[in-house]
Design a protein around this nucleic acid. Structure first.
Lengths: 269, 269
DNA sequence: GAAGAAATTAACCCGTTGGATAAATACTGG
DNA sequence: CCAGTATTTATCCAACGGGTTAATTTCTTC
């Protein structure tokens, strides 16, 4: 009893105390428009939209770091500089939060994908750009990888319900289709590979390495995320795919391969 | 109060009631040695080793299905046909269970890997066998994929502590090294690709497709696990890797590519 | 400047969960 | 067949964690 009470009080205090420290978080594009006069003055103590963004950002980090079941609503609140009640007020319950985060993640990558213009490049260069983009997007957004894994653990249960995500088509499959067609016509590529399979393969090469870098690093006994290892991996992937498509070993392929992260003979795996 | 009590009672009953039904689970190689006579007679109501195996099997399924945080010790007990106390008695607490499962999973794949003999095959065929094995192992052991993802979510925290796993070297890297060397010497392969990179790439192509099949299936709006899709994927992967290594389009590559799971023009991604 | 809406906070409820205890039961060696 | 050990069961509980309620503060509008 006494203990129970203490426990509770301590918990509460923890939340309250750590609350004031926040505010270093995400995108508060407000706070520029406060002139303290006109009708639309907002000198916010309150900041609904900023709050919502901070909540979603904190939720993203939390879900990415701990998965759906491991995520703690209290931690999200604390890290968003918010009260737990605010999460329910602004977004909804834990699953709502999760779905909002997931949808946001898809929106973001789709949006960046659309920014990639492969039309004016010659086919091999276009493919290289595609791999480079995918690789660097995953590197810059490790939470995206974690979220996808979490959602797959849940057998895509939430994604299935999201009409939003289902309507967000990636432009990449079509981009690849036209690039491959052009490549075959120009003679750069030998075969008209299925764009869906190629798309998945490129994603796979990047995704697996980064998503599983922790276990792989332990298994191989070296840090797969350090600069040299990353560079070598990118070179390998580009060389592999281009060699398969063009039938020629690229300069990179000849160079990168067979050296670099060389296994010391008795390589653990 | 009344409710609280009812809840508890209901739970308890549930465990006890569902207990008798078990016994369809894993490897009970015992029960053949019971002659009900000699010193070592074991006509078990009790069955310590069988019990331990059932617990580990149930734990594997549970952790694979729900992750570490989402796994429920009670469910493991129920599905093992055991009492919760038995888990602690035979294996340990939740994390001990998890680590035991993880180590078991690595042991199993390492053991099967050792059974694969690539020495007597000509290099392209050896690579094809390697891909085929990896693909089918992942298909047959989806829990392995889920466990790896879970462990990576935990940043390999447990794996790092497991001297056991760290000492289990995969024979594949060395296998690949010799195959590639032979391939280059025989002229089958154009370049001496780094065996570690190739190993990771092959695992990546298989792993990502299967591990993410749930979300990918939603995104693409079709079932990526049905027979035809699986066959096409395997063909694509073999063709991709062999084309890169040999510089020639395999028959398969020409065939499989550009057809099959074709995207209906406006393919969602 | 007051009424009302929007945002925020504190308090806490209550089922779940990992884990623990102790008692019962099955088996063994002597 | 008895003492002791190994295995199993039936309860229990403190802490946790998601979610809710009600009150408070801040902003808007008229």
């Amino acid at each position: 009893m006494r203990l129970t009470l203490q426990g509770r009080v301590r918990k509460r205090r923890t939340i309250s105390q750590s609350f004031p420290r926040v505010l270093q978080l995400a995108s508060c594009e407000h706070r520029a428009t406060d002139l303290a006069k006109a009708k639309r003055v907002q000198k916010w103590q309150r900041d609904p939209e900023g709050m919502r963004l901070r909540i979603l950002e904190a939720a993203k980090q939390e879900f990415a770091a701990h998965g759906l079941a491991g995520a703690r609503v209290d931690r999200i609140a604390t890290n968003a500089g918010a009260n737990k009640r605010m999460l329910y007020y602004h977004v909804g319950n834990k699953e709502d939060l999760y779905l909002a985060v997931l949808e946001g993640a898809y929106e973001k990558i789709r949006s960046e994908e659309r920014g990639l213009d492969l039309e004016h490049l010659d086919p091999p260069e276009a493919i290289e750009r595609l791999i480079d983009f995918t690789w660097n997007y995953f590197l810059r957004n490790p939470e995206f990888l974690a979220l996808l894994n979490t959602e797959n653990l849940a057998k895509a249960r939430h994604l299935k319900r999201s009409t939003k995500v289902k309507s967000m088509h990636s432009p990449f499959v079509e981009m690849i289709r036209t690039v491959v067609t052009r490549g075959v016509e120009s003679g750069d590529f030998r075969v008209a590979v299925d764009p869906v399979q190629l798309y998945i393969s490129i994603a796979a090469l990047c995704f697996f390495y980064l998503s599983n870098s922790a276990t792989l690093s332990v298994i191989f006994g070296r840090d797969l995320l350090k600069k040299e290892a990353r560079d070598e991996r990118l070179a390998h992937m580009v060389a592999l795919v281009l060699a398969a498509l063009t039938g020629k070993s690229t300069a990179d392929f000849g160079k990168a391969v067979g050296q670099g992260v060389r296994a010391p003979a008795h390589q653990p795996v």
